[in-house]
Design a protein around this nucleic acid. Structure first.
Length: 227
DNA sequence: GCGACAG
DNA sequence: ATCTTGTCGC
């Protein structure tokens, strides 16, 4: 019984699920976030676009991490990094996001506190989690068709879905982060996905953070330096 | 009981 | 997360 477990359980009670439909519009600004690690160095990428598809850019910054990776406690490693990145990004660019899409889980977590939920509660912003692996085992057969989904259950409660973003391709795992409904989260991920398994914004965040980590000069992305 | 376990 | 490009197969 780690005190981190208690903290997760406590914070999870602050997560808000909206049963209502999204109040998002075409001009809602979505920030897709991903991090690449190189030992203690972290390269954070934030990709800003509107729901309708207007691109602002992908912004990269570097920092250092102290908390080691531990399964189920990922929020305590990456959450603070993302929180600090957003503050730094807002100060540097004058931009703000309406909604965050995060490479990791929301409530599809044993104690319902993945990094997307952690960050949403800290910032009081709508967040959606989209991970490439599931922490919770799920049952059933997921249809091959694009857009099919299968619920992920935690003690009989649906906490997320396995979502097939492309026909015949391994699904992604979508869950509510904070201040959204699961239906809206699924819709968002599908709307932002065109050619690949992961959404376009998370794909750009992943690719450009990787380029920064390799020391490649900024071309298609914006270098915000270190914080 | 033991191991596995988002990035 | 990372080691790792093009290539084989459904």
């Amino acid at each position: 019984m780690d005190n981190w477990d208690l903290l997760q359980t406590t914070l999870a009670q602050q997560v808000m699920h909206l049963p209502a439909q999204p109040v998002w519009a075409d001009d809602t600004r979505i920030l897709g976030l991903d991090v690449q690690y190189d030992g203690d160095n972290a390269y954070i990428a934030g990709d800003l676009q509107t729901l309708a598809g207007k691109l602002f850019g992908t912004y990269i910054a570097k920092t250092t991490v102290a908390v080691p990776y531990k399964p189920q406690y990922f929020a305590f490693r990456e959450g603070p990094i993302l929180q600090n990145f957003i503050a730094y990004w807002e100060a540097q660019t004058g931009l703000k996001a309406d909604l965050l899409l995060i490479d990791g889980h929301g409530i599809a977590h044993p104690r319902k506190l993945g990094v997307a939920s952690w960050l949403g509660v800290q910032l009081d912003l709508p967040t959606v989690g989209c991970a490439k692996e599931s922490l919770i085992h799920f049952q059933g057969n997921l249809a091959e068709e694009k857009g099919s989904s299968l619920p992920i259950l935690l003690e009989k409660e649906t906490v997320g879905v396995a979502l097939r973003t492309q026909k015949g391709i391994k699904p992604v795992f979508v869950s509510v982060g904070h201040l959204v409904s699961l239906e809206a989260s699924i819709d968002l991920v599908m709307r932002l996905t065109s050619l690949y398994r992961i959404s376009d914004n998370l794909r750009r965040a992943d690719q450009y953070a990787r380029q920064a980590f390799r020391g490649e000069p900024a071309k298609e992305w914006i270098d915000l330096g270190s914080f």
